[in-house]
Design a protein around this nucleic acid. Structure first.
Lengths: 252, 252
DNA sequence: CGATTCGTTGACATGCTTCAAACTTCGTGG
DNA sequence: CCACGAAGTTTGAAGCATGTCAACGAATCG
């Protein structure tokens, strides 16, 4: 059979997956047809070519065979945040599942060869699709945290944190404008990479701005629009919406 | 059948998974026996009880039904880094797969009810086990990045970054002591949440320490032990192994 | 009702960013 | 092959956001 020949050829020429206990293609694809497809799906990218871009519809993930790749996302302010660098043997592109829009971009850092794993060919072996979707969501959440820690100042982190909580409460049918924090200031600081004192001071300042009302663990969001603006604002961004000095101008 | 009754009871009393398109238990577990097991696996935890601890062997993941949970990990220096807060409906504990040691801990923030999903019951539906293992590894990598961004200073981040690269090259059969960076200083800074200038300065300083030899993108690690020590060192840790002032003492 | 944990506020120290400028390397076209 | 410009890297000086240290008030718990 031609497919058989192709298939076995495909297996022997590549040892990149050995540390994983053998070719991922053989592990994940049952039919020789699918394996042949995979064989054909090998691709060479030149330096600085995008493997995929944020917003594109995802239909596969990748194994890097040679070269190197960086994945990144872009903040609302046009700033780039690198999420990781991939070396030969690494699997990437699993932070988005079939049919979803890519949540990050990937670009080659040099001439690169990679193996495409189209979701469609995974067939029965990808039964846990729902689980994969859940893990992808978790990764996206992690990536947001990374972005927050790397690119946002204290104001931005606290605002993002509160906005995130509000959204999650809303999506569960609770009030997004008033809720009780179940965690201590210590925990919040430890999550956001800030000192407890900074958390406390920032919350106080937000209250002075009229953005929030805070009483110990009770939070009420008074001006969600401004909160969002602060959350999306980069450190030295041009518009200091509600930053320290601004407070002096419009205390409530 | 008793199991049937149990099973349907189990389905009707819980609406936490509705936004996911229905009970995860029904989606992931095929046999009524497994579903009953799941039903029995519901658990109430009081405030500040651990759901699992780092190092324990993982045999399940969880869906939070009510209450809230925080997940975290502890640095080599005993510092805590919070990785996330979970609200009702959230799935957690998927950063470790069956049989592995937990890579993080989870503790309740208040009285909490949760649903256990033992890996063993997933049966055929979890075929993509290999894929899950890969996504779990990716998550662990992300968590390391979070820890780095939140808890380490510039020296620690650069050192961790280089050590990570070295380890990955070693595991692939390349030299861990001498390699070429495929990414620009800009990219490194963008990954580590540092300004380009800081990256450059830090590398220069490491060279002055005798830890590295750097020439543009070529890196040679001369003192891997010290590099590791810097990587693991927290910001204001007692031992300033190779920090700014230290350089003055022992320039090479 | 003490004891402990949690939250807030102030003063000060400092590590990193920002701004600026020079140098090197690389790619491109004359 | 060299000239030229763009991009990447390095180094210096100065400002500032955040961490650290310290003290106090408030709430919680046994």
């Amino acid at each position: 059979m031609l497919t058989q020949v192709q298939s076995s050829h495909f297996v022997h020429e590549c040892h990149i997956c050995e540390p994983r206990g053998g070719c991922l293609g053989l592990q994940l694809l049952d039919s020789p047809e699918a394996q042949q497809q995979l064989s054909n799906a090998k691709k060479i990218n030149r330096k600085s070519e995008h493997v995929y871009r944020e917003g594109e519809e995802a239909d596969c993930f990748y194994v890097l065979r040679s070269g190197s790749v960086k994945s990144y996302l872009v903040t609302e302010d046009g700033e780039e945040q690198v999420l990781g660098f991939y070396l030969p043997g690494d699997v990437f592109g699993m932070d988005t599942t079939e049919g979803q829009q890519r949540m990050s971009s990937a670009i080659t850092l040099e001439t690169t060869s990679l193996c495409r794993f189209p979701h469609a060919y995974l067939g029965g072996k990808a039964q846990g699709t729902n689980l994969l979707k859940i893990t992808a969501e978790q990764m996206q959440r992690d990536h947001n945290l990374v972005l927050m820690l790397a690119r946002k100042d204290a104001d931005g982190r606290i605002a993002s944190f509160l906005d995130d909580l509000a959204c999650r409460y809303r999506s569960r049918g609770y009030s997004a404008e008033a809720f009780v924090l179940t965690m201590s200031r210590q925990d919040i600081g430890c999550y956001l990479g800030l000192a407890v004192e900074t958390v406390s001071r920032t919350l106080t300042r937000f209250q002075e701005c009229g953005v929030l009302k805070v009483n110990r663990r009770e939070v009420e969001i008074l001006d969600h629009a401004t909160l969002r603006k602060i959350a999306g604002t980069r450190i030295s961004s041009a518009s200091p919406s509600c930053r320290q000095q601004e407070v002096e101008f419009k205390p409530v």
